[in-house]
Nucleic acid binder design. Structure first.
Length: 186
DNA sequence: AGCGGGATTTTCT
DNA sequence: GAAAATCCCGCTT
């Protein structure tokens, strides 16, 4: 397990930028870089964990480095990296990825080329075939592994308000790599 | 380029 | 029974 994942989500979210995800599909692997994240904490009104532990959010309160997958709007999955210490309900939403190699494997799940393939939280879950089956999966293991990379320089990281939520809109908890073409929205 | 609605199901009130 | 950490399409400027 990557030790710094036990830090608060607000610290982990920018630290995850530039790190890699390795997804195994049909015995082959796709390598992708994390380029956009959002932090969610237990004290945050917009977080699923704000109202305490429930059946749905129990993974968020569990061990850091696992995957929290939720279903929303009747048709979409989104995925998070669980952060913080055991018992803390915090996580980081993965909002956009840049495919580095093996991108053609994604075609059968999301047959859209270019940046449109993975530049949104529900899009990347569709492209990587991430569903409820992977809820609670450890990111230290295949078929979905998180690979640590050196931290980015802070002047490469943009910090702004989050997207797609109705509560706590103004909290600057969204992070992305400066001028990166795969970011979901400027 | 920007706005508005529909899809569709899980979760909590 | 309503809202939701979204996306896509079609209509209007």
């Amino acid at each position: 397990m990557i030790s710094w994942l036990t830090q608060p989500s607000e610290e982990v979210a920018p630290r995850l930028l530039g790190c890699l995800l390795e997804r195994t599909l049909e015995g082959k692997t796709v390598l992708l870089k994390i380029v956009e994240t959002e932090a969610y904490a237990e004290t945050d009104e917009a977080s699923h964990s704000f109202k305490g532990k429930t059946n749905r959010t129990s993974i968020m309160f569990g061990e850091a480095g696992h995957l929290y997958v939720y279903f929303t709007y009747g048709m979409h999955y989104c995925c998070n990296v669980v952060t913080g210490r055991n018992g803390e309900g915090s996580a980081v939403l993965i909002r956009a990825l840049e495919p580095l190699s093996g991108e053609e494997l994604l075609d059968q799940y999301r047959p859209v080329g270019g940046v449109q393939r993975t530049n949104g939280p529900a899009k990347l879950c569709q492209a990587l075939n991430i569903t409820a089956e992977l809820n609670g999966h450890s990111l230290a293991e295949p078929p979905l592994r998180l690979i640590e990379q050196p931290p980015l320089h802070h002047d490469e990281i943009i910090r702004t308000s989050r997207i797609g939520i109705s509560k706590a809109k103004d909290a600057p908890l969204r992070f992305y790599i400066k001028a990166h073409p795969y970011v979901s929205k400027l």
